[in-house]
Design a binder for these strands. Structure first.
Lengths: 340, 340
DNA sequence: GTGAAAGCGCTAACAT
DNA sequence: ATGTTAGCGCTTTCAC
């Protein structure tokens, strides 16, 4: 084989090439590939035949240039450590593909805002931007808003009161149910392991949790921050379990930390989960139901949540209502909060 | 606020708009945004000022149209269940961003080939296609090859002997080390839990494992297929553990199945991991080192592997060597194979 | 139903 | 160093 042949990447056939081969105009080729365009059956067939022969594929970059939209959806994933986001990404990707869209995915470093990458991805004229637990600066958010680039927050609400759409789980409600459930189970010294205090998601969960405890006349919970990471969760668990007034239950702001806390309690402190220390999380990520963890949690139903994201991505009207959609999940009572 | 204003998505400013405001030619604007272009400092400043004022951002679709390349890299993820791929995706995304590229991600349904989505993504003139444990048909692979679209297989080798690049872990070597390690630990009735038999990755691991056992004069292992999924792994574990000649150790083709098997052994069969049943995996995914699993495994070092992927993505020459890169990991001896 | 022609926003010669 | 010009591959009028 001649290596030099491989060095030259052949430029792919264009609509013009196809037109010439089919003996029609270039416009006809375009029509043949445009569903619903007015073109005779015979012409379309001629075109398609030529296209197949040449291996022609319409260039979407050119099409996007004209249309002003790219069918590209920017997707930012913060907190990539958290396995919760893999099924979410899969669902989103599947649904986008089905809708003829594509996801331009990038990850943001935890704790940093995603401004840099977003500026970058905006150059592709993405139709919308889905932010999964990622932060961006107020300035950039405002810029997107001004430029009419729809921002959709997933599992996170914007920190500012700019008009922006979001799809979140039922943070307050779910956290409240967890709180009541823990009290029902007989736990009394209950701790909250939080995420960053500037995260709206965290604050809603904490708020819902505290309120539930108060309403039942229980003492306010002690608190430790685990920052939604594994290491943070482990450190926070150690801090809590080392206290003289050790809590008898911990509600963690997400499952990922809850599992970390459970492992610390079990393997470092030798505690029996459930009986000696109740642990609950939030998300119902796949691992939560594994027998190793059997974690009580409040579910964030990925399917329905992504349904709503897709509506916001696809339906301009819905988007412009700047809805703050809350998708309810359900309390998943499991062994990690069973005292008996 | 006037709702009608929001309905109209303003078309973003073009280089022309900037040129007019700055009092220069449109080409000057292009040069101002092209690193290394010959342009006077003063001109560039004028341009930049105007650009900032208008909120101008070069349209990459237009640029790509001219250049013939998009800086877009297609990334297909098969087996999205497996948490191993989240860190991989993160690393890849980070590295691509750093290189000024972007990932067009989509997921392929397990067991199906990704032809449909790939055909689709090819329309964006992606510079390369990275396949992570996904399958595609021979026809499509050949087509890509013919069209000069570089295909890079990650964690998987092509099933055919078309000249294509791949980056994989040291499957045979690693599996061999696992096999010898199990024998050293005193296990004798050793089973292999495999992935699909048409997966080269699976076959390499099985081959390396079998060979190691044979070389030590051990009996050939029994085998059960777990298809690399959680459900499959659990079913296979049940089948193995229910046998009258129950194995005393199981090597699973990936960590994800190994963890599933461990849970079945522990929670359904009441076996003590390590002492009563040795379990080993492959990948060293994050969960493997969690105290709950403490899984013996052979690592696939994500960083170095992605390094090699990036070389193939960025360096035409390397790509054309169609290298089959094998990145060595290391045996991670942990509690799941400790008999004592 | 079809072709000719204009132009999406940019880069890359080519002049000057 | 800068402006002018010609496209990149397509969609979309506009005639016919």
């Amino acid at each position: 084989m001649d290596r030099s042949l491989k060095r030259i990447r052949p430029s792919p056939p264009s609509a013009h090439d196809v037109a010439r081969l089919a003996g029609v105009s270039q416009a006809a080729v375009s029509r043949a590939f445009t569903p619903g365009a007015s073109i005779a059956k015979a012409t379309r067939e001629k075109v398609m035949e030529a296209a197949t022969e040449l291996g022609y594929r319409p260039n979407l970059l050119a099409r996007s240039l004209i249309k002003g939209v790219s069918d590209l959806i920017g997707v930012v994933i913060g907190n990539t450590q958290n396995p919760f986001f893999l099924p979410v990404l899969e669902e989103l990707s599947t649904r986008l593909t089905r809708a003829g869209k594509h996801s331009l995915v990038f990850t943001a470093e935890h704790g940093h805002d995603a401004d840099f990458q977003i500026e970058d991805v905006l150059r592709y004229r993405v139709d919308a931007l889905v932010l999964m637990s990622a932060s961006l600066s107020f300035e950039l958010a405002e810029k997107c808003s001004r430029e009419g680039i729809p921002l959709i927050f997933f599992n996170r609400r914007p920190r500012w009161d700019l008009p922006m759409a979001s799809v979140t789980g039922a943070n307050e409600k779910g956290a409240g149910e967890i709180g009541r459930h823990l009290l029902e189970q007989g736990y009394r010294r209950i701790a909250y392991m939080g995420g960053p205090t500037d995260s709206p998601t965290n604050n809603e969960r904490e708020e819902g949790f505290r309120r539930a405890l108060e309403q039942q006349g229980a003492e306010p919970a002690m608190r430790e921050l685990g920052y939604l990471t594994r290491e943070g969760g482990m450190a926070a668990a150690r801090a809590l379990l080392n206290r003289p007034d050790r809590p008898d239950a911990i509600f963690c702001a997400n499952d990922f930390m809850a599992i970390a806390a459970m492992e610390v309690a079990r393997h470092e402190f030798g505690l029996e989960i459930g009986r000696e220390i109740g642990i609950a999380g939030f998300d119902d990520m796949p691992d939560a139901s594994w027998p190793s963890f059997d974690l009580t949690t409040y579910s964030q139903p990925i399917g329905p949540m992504i349904d709503r994201v897709m509506e916001l991505v696809l339906d301009l009207d819905a988007r412009e209502r700047f809805e703050q959609v809350i998708v309810e999940g359900a309390l998943q009572k499991r062994g990690s909060t069973r005292r008996g």
